[in-house]
């Protein structure tokens, strides 16, 4: 087993000492999409002692083009990304601890998830979740590495709470009109260059080397690269990272919540509290009316009124084929909650 990390140990800035440090660290990866998969695989192979990966989604055929931990079988069975990622990472490296959590990263579970975490890697595909990460990381003083990619572009920034500017310092409002991978497309190399940079920064930090204060971007198709030192942009009035921080994105909402998943013709509905839905019973109840009701380890999927429903055990439901919140709520009440 000593052979396993020999090449990485040969790399002078890490060495045997750095490798021993990595074995003691715990990395949280939020999102097991393209960036999450790529980071997770590199970190598992690098010998990070413990990796926790959380994701709210399940695997679809359109993911296989770049989400490297998943197979055709996973897509065919709509497997939860967190579960499939956990299994694959364990198969890659059985000497480390891996835990997959099939939930949404939200203000309710953020504090618990950030406990005993050395660093957080952004593997999300949306700014809503990133701003929750940003607030939580700032509040609980956990460093994190933002990464984003679309088309042939990638971007990254390392954020060290109390030292360097946070995402809120650089972007004063939630970008709503951005391009997503669904609307503008993406190529695998844009994912890989972004994840490679994030993982490198992560390995630097975990082995005692300073992270960069540069906002970096890559264009793997146009062969572009740019880096701007943003250290000076730390905002002394920042709502997320200053002494007077309010952590606006950690405010917990009451009651039912909905989110339109950008570019996917999908609405997510979440009940007020986390419920423990008996998926098998729900499947039996809707079976006579619904097309193809199937239950797997964490979710139930079925077809109804030409919409596709995916219900997770905690009650969270994705309804595909709707783009408005009111209709989605109605469908949720009619079929899931009843």
């Amino acid at each position: 087993m000593a052979e396993r990390y020999s090449r990485q140990e040969r790399f002078a800035p890490i060495g045997k000492e750095g490798q021993a440090l990595l074995a003691e660290k715990h990395v949280l990866i939020v999102g097991a999409g393209a960036l999450g998969c790529a980071n997770a695989e590199m970190l598992a192979r690098a010998g990070i002692g413990k990796i926790t990966i959380i994701d709210r989604d399940y695997i679809e055929w359109s993911n296989l083009g770049r989400q490297q931990l998943y197979t055709e079988e996973d897509a065919a069975s709509s497997r939860a990304k967190a579960k499939a990622a956990e299994a694959r990472l364990k198969a890659i490296n059985s000497n480390i601890e891996v835990k997959g959590i099939a939930e949404e990263f939200d203000p309710e579970n953020a504090e618990l998830l950030l406990k005993d975490i050395d660093i957080l890697i952004d593997g999300t595909d949306n700014f809503d979740t990133r701003f929750i990460i940003n607030d939580a990381a700032s509040k609980y003083k956990v460093p994190w590495i933002y990464g984003g990619c679309v088309k042939s572009h990638g971007i990254s920034l390392s954020i060290l709470p109390g030292e360097t500017p946070c995402l809120q310092c650089l972007i004063d409002q939630l970008p709503q009109d951005g391009e997503t991978c669904e609307t503008a497309g993406i190529i695998g190399p844009a994912v890989q260059v972004t994840a490679a940079y994030q993982t490198a920064e992560c390995l630097r930090f975990l082995t005692g080397h300073p992270m960069s204060t540069h906002l970096v971007s890559f264009d793997v198709w146009g062969r572009g690269y740019s880096a701007i030192d943003v250290a000076k942009l730390k905002d002394p009035q920042c709502a997320s990272c200053s002494d007077a921080a309010q952590f606006p994105y950690l405010k917990k909402e009451r009651g039912m919540r909905t989110a339109v998943l950008c570019g996917r013709d999908t609405v997510q509905v979440r009940p007020g509290g986390k419920e423990n839905v008996n998926l098998e019973r729900l499947a039996r109840r809707i079976e006579p009316f619904a097309g193809e009701a199937k239950v797997n380890e964490v979710l139930l999927r079925f077809q109804m009124e030409e919409k596709r429903f995916v219900v997770f055990r905690d009650g969270r439901t994705l309804i595909h084929g709707v783009d408005n919140v009111q209709e989605a709520k109605k469908l949720y009440h009619r079929y899931v909650e009843a």
Partner: peptide, 10 residues
């Protein structure tokens, strides 16, 4: 000139 533009995908 250097321009870095935030993107949301991933």
């Amino acid at each position: 000139i250097e321009i870095v533009h935030f993107v949301g995908g991933g």
